[in-house]
Write a protein that binds this DNA or RNA. Structure first.
Lengths: 362, 362
DNA sequence: CTGTTAGCGCGTTCAA
DNA sequence: TTGAACGCGCTAACAG
């Protein structure tokens, strides 16, 4: 392949001037490549001040910047790690990302962010890509899928740390919310506030460990309180038709409760919805708002795990996840693995924080 | 360098099995590296079916995946492009990102997402990093800064495309919203709806071209309508103290208007706020909500450029940007540059869409 | 202190 | 149709 544009003598520098290489610098400084390499790697004490000055001058003159690819090829490590995000649309992911970035920064790592956009196929492709680019490790906020798709990762493959959710059959470090405690905390709050009917609303959870744990903890908390087992509504946000069926079911229940006595406009509602995460909470709020108007909160209380920016505006109670810490910790785990730690799979479960707002305050 | 861990016979496979190289595959298939390379690059017709079969078997057996780094080093192109995002917290950025990803996908590019998190220093470091990794081009949603920090980019440097904002002194392709039309559209809508007082609220815009254009278009539209020039409020979201001073100024103005006659609870407000983007709109909504309670919209109408997910919930009118298209187009521009297009700097201004909601409907 | 040499994993002439 | 040899930009032994 000849990149020299037509009409230009072969060998002449292409229009977008080819970047200088270490060889160029060596020639420019009148020395060998080794000395340049030494200079770049801080073995600066082993260079005569005079040579050093020449090297600095040459580098500046050529605006030289070492090629990390070549560097990585030689050293066998490129300081790259992959960060596979299931859904960047979810504020949770962006917040975790910020922790990841900060930690990478502190540890001299460079995160490659890959967005699967809720598509299994994307997840597979990105994982493949990360592997071929020989990243030193990956942080995976997996779609709910089974181990199969991320075979190249984990034991036997490149080091991996799971975020938020576990993947069946894949043993690896994992860091996320203490779902049991968080869902328990929320349920207990609703019970203390005297809500008579409590529904837990969650996306399909068969594949997603964190959702499972939240559902289970909710059920347990209801049982422990001696209450009839809580209702659980599954809302598949990816399937509009199914979603609307679910919401219709919810509507009927709410209508029934409201019809059995107390006036609907009572100061405080007796029905509470516990959303398993922010996307669910948003969907619920939009629906209730459309059905009952701006005053929907006088009929139904809403509590959600996650604390999106609109929660304060809508005045709903939330359980905020320590997202930044989750991301930061994940990178630390990964870094230890990369440095050769051989410990068995570790877990890091961080607590959520209850933020009470008007929706559930009485 | 010997990567074999101590206590292990040299040549034995290390614990985290070293990835197979092209040489390994060649040996396994009983042939030379060249044939493997040909196979990988689709020069498949030039291989005897028998050899091809052996190669396929060897690749499968070793789970071989070509090293993209080495590939890139050799070819001089690595199919990597950088995507520098100023603020992932802004839903706008995430939406643009989705367009970028789709386009990259279609064009065989791999986007490296870098998040400057509103820090100039970060922007500089990431740009530097992208350069040293020899990405083939960058898409830059720059902080408001001057050309200085992104010197390695643009003319003379690696191909670049600007998103949303222009950078002073840097000539490069740019794609974004048609700010003039959008701000005009919004202003006209508010005028048609009969609002008497209209404030345009924007973050500091000296450094950010898109904000400048929005302010100017607002002023122009007000003048064209023969109205007293609109008020403009600058809200520096990064400076909490300054921000509160600005909001206090706004409060005084609203109080004055409300005190001069009509009852505050009038069905439709006479005051409208035009937020230059979603973060500003959110800050305004939070403030008004805190000050006037949940019914703040009966006092003040809110219209915003950008269409965050909570806009529907809050019922505010918005001008939605064609975010996906912006991202997609940016990659197409960049791709053309990478392939050698020498055209002068191009602009692509896409129209916004007005979405009228209760806030401004009368 | 400094330069020479030999690869890292791969693609690409050029012969065979 | 196949393979040997060279080099991409860089680091690391090994001399001088």
């Amino acid at each position: 392949m000849n990149t020299t544009p037509p009409g230009m003598p072969p060998g002449a520098s292409p229009p977008a001037t080819r970047r200088a290489t270490i060889t160029d610098v060596a020639r420019e400084a009148g020395t060998g490549k080794t000395s340049i390499s030494r200079y770049l790697n801080g073995e600066i004490s082993a260079l005569s001040p005079e040579l050093r000055a020449r090297i600095e001058a040459a580098i500046a003159r050529l605006d030289y910047q070492p090629n990390q690819m070549a560097r990585g090829l030689k050293r066998g490590r490129n300081r790259l790690i992959g960060m596979l995000v299931a859904d960047l649309t979810n504020p949770y992911s962006v917040e975790v990302l910020q922790g990841v970035e900060a930690a990478c920064h502190a540890l001299g790592l460079m995160p490659l962010i890959c967005h699967a956009a809720n598509e299994v196929e994307m997840e597979r492709r990105y994982l493949q890509l990360l592997t071929t680019y020989r990243v030193e490790g990956v942080i995976v906020n997996a779609l709910g899928v089974r181990e199969e798709t991320l075979r190249p990762v984990g034991e036997g493959g490149i080091p991996a740390v799971l975020v938020d959710r576990r993947v069946e059959g894949l043993v690896a470090d994992m860091v996320g919310l203490d779902n049991g405690a968080a869902a328990g905390l929320g349920t207990q709050h609703l019970l203390e506030q005297g809500f008579e009917h409590i529904w837990f609303v969650v996306q399909p959870f068969a594949q997603v460990s964190s959702r499972q744990q939240r559902v289970e903890a909710f059920d347990r908390a209801m049982r422990d309180a001696g209450r009839a087992r809580g209702h659980t509504l599954v809302l598949d946000l990816a399937d509009e038709a199914a979603c609307e069926r679910g919401l219709a079911e919810l509507d009927r229940a709410i209508d029934a409760w409201c019809a059995d006595g107390i006036e609907p406009a009572a100061a405080s509602p007796r029905v509470a919805l516990f959303a398993a995460n922010a996307p669910v909470a948003l969907r619920l709020a939009l629906h209730l708002n459309a059905r009952y108007g701006a005053h929907w909160q006088s009929r139904v209380a809403l509590l959600a795990i996650d604390d999106p920016d609109w929660a304060e505006l809508a005045g709903i109670t939330t359980i905020r996840q320590p997202t930044y810490d989750i991301g930061y910790r994940a990178v630390e785990f990964l870094h230890e693995r990369i440095e050769g730690a051989q410990t068995g799979a570790r877990d890091c479960l961080l607590p959520g924080e209850l933020i009470v707002r008007a929706s559930t305050a009485r």
